[in-house]
Amino acid sequence: MVFSTLVRLTGSREHVDDLAQEVFLRLYRALPGFRGEALLSTYLYRITVNVAQNEWKRQRRDVRSTVSISDEVSGWEDRLEHPGPNAEEQMEEREFKQEVEEQLQQLSQVERTVLVLYHQEERTYEQIAEVLGMPIGTVRTHLHRGRKKMRDGLMARQATVEQATATQATATQAAERRAAWATR
């Protein structure tokens, strides 16, 4: 849970084990003060989110380009390993997931955190509100706003790709017609 949440929130696999170590050390130090008012998982999520936010601020300061986690999951060798009838669909799905990750990193910290906790970690509104210390209504607003931004971003990219494909097809057809005219 900790590793996958950190990867999604920071958008990078760099230093994830260091960050996860920091999470568990903070949990250990905070345990004597834990009175059981909330679930231990809520406590752990809160610490994970704080560590991720600190890392995100550090990344912004360092102005590093984030490494796409989709690239690290499967290299070209994996993509070519099992060619089959669904290979094109699989590649398209992988590219879509990569675009989703890129759009996720475009969101604000809070929107990204809410989306990850809700969809990936399957937390309820109440649990997310408790982790982030905000009202449930605010959580809902961030969730819907974040999803809408991502959807609009993805559709805009899709439209751009389709337009580029159409332009390329037109140019190819024009070249073929010129070649056919030249051979007459």
Binding site: F3, V100, L154
Partner: peptide
């Protein structure tokens, strides 16, 4: 697009704990 987006968000990134 919404359905695809939600499926992609629900898929956990593959992580390897060292």
């Amino acid at each position: 697009m919404d359905a695809r987006l939600v499926r992609a968000l629900e898929a956990r990134p593959a992580v390897e704990i060292p």
